[in-house]
Write a protein that binds this DNA or RNA. Structure first.
Lengths: 343, 343
DNA sequence: CATTAAAATTTACGCGCGTAAACTTTAGTT
DNA sequence: AACTAAAGTTTACGCGCGTAAATTTTAATG
């Protein structure tokens, strides 16, 4: 009892008893045909599992149903989580997500955009690499394709940016750390791959001064996306050298903090709030693994849900409006303090 | 000084001074045209950054240059790492990777395959969900599209399976654990999402008996892919209940181990090799984060490089042969013991 | 029942490229 | 210079579908 093999829309039209344009209309928008027609089409659809050829669909269409998603490094669980949520939302909106990772490589980032451009996407969501990105190329892309950037704003990307309120998040964490102990030292990379880092450092310095404390910044050497390794190696070095002005370390992100915690553990330094602890460590991002570090990591969470939801919503609006505002809207969502055992 | 806008191959042919079929030939295989022609085409290409329309390219081609990659859960760093390597290899081979995650959902897995089928991929690399997969649907897919499965073999997937030698890996770890201490208890999920788990349990039991020891298996309750959480919650419970027959715990995978280590830490149990440690903990997978746990995790590494390289190589061979062998080749790569601080 | 708007059909063209066949030019050999 | 295979050109058709325009059918209303 094999289902009949339907090769194209012509054959399916015959099979279902409607004309091809009607079938075409149905696939473009099921609501655009009469409900009785819709039911009948779906009934025949169940009997032969035909699917329109994606290439042919998009060949002669003004607007495709493709939405590109470009992230800087998919092997980073933070971006994996963001991508997972965005993909789900895009599917729910009736579009087809196309997920591309730049693997930390600016050339691949541009290549990804070129690939996307050639499939005429309805829109694109991009979290740029940041510092190393080819700004001009990205800007050129945004001029042609409705684009919303998220997570990292490099000041040129698209009609809108939806991201995390680094300044507020840093402030919340600093207030907590100071209130419950002492002003922290800020631990970051000298050359962070992600532009959020600069915002965080500046917010740290500014807020510390506003609170009447002296800012201390320790900058780790190293390039690339092996953040845990850099946090471990450079954190260990700084600990051995007693480079930290206080016993409270505020890491620029959780991955750095995870490496740092490993270094502290290896050196036999207890981390936590209690009296017998030598260090307090806080991170930033609410990384998926931050609940399972030893001790569990006190951090600031991005509003994952709000950021992804709004990014997708804005892109859909942009797609529907079709005329570009050029306003460069920026939307930031506040972070939330996640108090755990490490600080 | 704007580059001229070339809309299609016709225009580019005129721009470069060659005929359209020659240009088409060049894009299909640059080596198929004379080197002088190639140089000239590439020269003009640099002057106008034209790209053939992907949809039109694949519209009327017998074999597309697309290679599908389907993983069960992309937010799992293990699969993110595998996907990253495979993507790079596929690009290097001149194909375009299309990465799809099933997000742990069998329905989405089938949907992903349906999406892939409709773009007529040259081949597909799939790591099936496993237990929850719709075997019949996957089998039907493999009958139509050259498919190589990796990581998890569900006995029906495609012409070839490239994976990790679980039996050997378990044996190596058991030998090490016994030699350097005592026979371990095996800690796993009762309903693991991934079929590798069953192979590992069986290998554990078999090898233990062969070595003359009594196997002890503790099975954690819980469903889904939140393995750290399950490892933490159920590991904690088992520790509190003193359910472990010995002080050496061999976790079925690193993510479970990461959760387990967090539980041990919270309970104040020192983990490691030294005399003052209450527990030894080993994992399996050489998860990207296993170097940064506290203590660092002793584990068995997959041969990531060999598995990904061979998977891609086999798929390319399958694509080129075009006639299907139907042999169902299985290739396993040995694991490597990674000795760290936890056991 | 007549009226009318909505829905479906028919017809026809086009998207950008792959590809095959027949022909012409080019480059490399004797 | 004559020959030959390789490379390039011309011509022509087709892929599977989107889409527009004109026409016919259907369903809803008074």
């Amino acid at each position: 009892m094999r289902k009949p093999k339907i090769q194209n829309m012509e054959e399916f039209a015959e099979f279902s008893g409607f004309s091809r344009p009607t079938i075409s209309k149905y696939f473009n928008d099921p609501q655009s045909v009469r409900s009785r027609t819709r039911d009948k089409i779906e009934e025949s659809l169940a009997k032969c599992d035909y699917r329109p050829n994606i290439f042919a669909i998009n060949q002669n269409r003004k607007l495709t149903k493709n939405v590109g998603i470009v992230v800087p490094y998919l092997a980073d669980p933070f971006f994996a989580e963001m991508a997972r949520r965005i993909e789900t939302l895009v599917i729910a909106a009736g579009f087809q997500p196309i997920l591309l990772s730049s693997h930390g490589d600016p050339a691949l980032e541009i290549d990804n955009l070129a690939s996307l451009r050639s499939i005429k996407p309805a829109g694109v969501l991009i979290a740029p690499l940041g510092r190393t990105s080819d700004r001009a190329a990205i800007e050129a892309f945004c001029a042609d394709v409705p684009t919303v950037s998220f997570d990292a704003n490099i000041e040129v990307t698209g009609e809108a940016f939806v991201g995390h309120n680094n300044a507020q998040a840093i402030e919340v964490m600093l207030e907590y750390l100071v209130r419950s102990g002492e002003p922290p030292v800020f631990f970051e990379m000298r050359n962070p791959p992600n532009p959020n880092a600069n915002k965080r450092r500046n917010a740290y310095i500014e807020t510390m001064e506003l609170m009447g404390h002296t800012p201390h910044v320790i900058q780790a050497e190293g390039e690339g996306w092996s953040l845990e390794e850099i946090g471990f190696r450079e954190g260990r070095k700084a600990l051995v050298d007693k480079a930290f002005a206080t016993g409270t370390i505020f890491c620029s992100n959780d991955r750095l903090a995870i490496g740092f915690l490993a270094a502290a553990y290896e050196l036999g330094l207890r981390v936590g709030l209690s009296e017998d602890c030598a260090l307090r460590v806080a991170g930033h991002d609410n990384h998926p693994f931050s609940s399972f570090t030893c001790p569990t990591l006190t951090t600031v969470s991005h509003d994952y849900e709000a950021i992804t939801a709004r990014s997708v919503k804005m892109l859909l609006e942009l797609i529907n409006k079709d005329e570009r505002s050029g306003t460069g809207t920026t939307i930031l969502f506040d972070g939330k303090l996640i108090m755990r055992a490490s600080a």
